[in-house]
């Protein structure tokens, strides 16, 4: 009788394990595959990508883009999303991770290919600089302000809010070529 109860207990335990879908991993494996999990003590940042400004400047938008079918109706390419902040992460690192994880197209110029010594974002979601007038392009804000530095030079801290915005009224930045 006691033995039966023991076995039954065992069965229940196994069923619980199966139902919970427990993973079987070593500690290293667990660390690697769960690096981006948000826990209570995780440091995180928020990122969003938005191109709604083009709707206010629709006349200036390149016809090819209008008909491309890639434009989100409300201009939201990526809604405000929380990501784990890894040690030394720059704005570019988080953007690059966010677009990869969400399979959003992006094209950029590497830091060693230009004179700014920083990565330069040319296009996101098939929307490129100058597609909406000569002052259009991708800019980013951190906590509501436009930093003066390239996105791969800006190191983030816990709680930072990054907004990538497609603007049609550039002029903040150096635009030598």
């Amino acid at each position: 009788m006691k033995k039966d109860l023991l076995i039954l207990g065992f069965i229940v335990l196994i069923i619980v394990i199966i139902v919970n879908g427990t993973e079987f991993q070593t500690v290293d494996e667990y660390y690697l595959t769960h690096i981006d999990d948000i826990r209570e003590d995780s440091q995180t940042v928020f990122i969003s990508i938005n191109c709604s400004e083009i709707y206010a400047n629709w006349d200036m938008l390149d016809d090819n883009i209008k008909n491309s079918g890639y434009l989100p109706k409300d201009g939201v390419i990526l809604d405000k999303t929380e990501y784990v902040l890894r040690e030394g992460d720059t704005v570019f690192d988080v953007l690059n991770r966010a677009v990869r994880y969400n399979k959003i197209q992006m094209e950029y110029q590497g830091a060693d290919m230009n004179i700014y010594n920083s990565v330069y974002i040319q296009g996101i979601n098939y929307l490129y600089e100058f597609d909406c007038g000569e002052l259009s392009g991708w800019l980013y804000k951190v906590n509501g302000e436009f930093p003066k530095y390239g996105c791969s030079s800006y190191v983030l801290k816990d709680g930072d809010i990054i907004e990538w915005i497609y603007t049609c009224e550039l002029g903040q930045e150096y635009n030598l070529f």
Partner: peptide
């Protein structure tokens, strides 16, 4: 020096 960007 940009206060926003300690890496500058």
């Amino acid at each position: 020096y940009d206060n926003n960007n300690p890496e500058s």
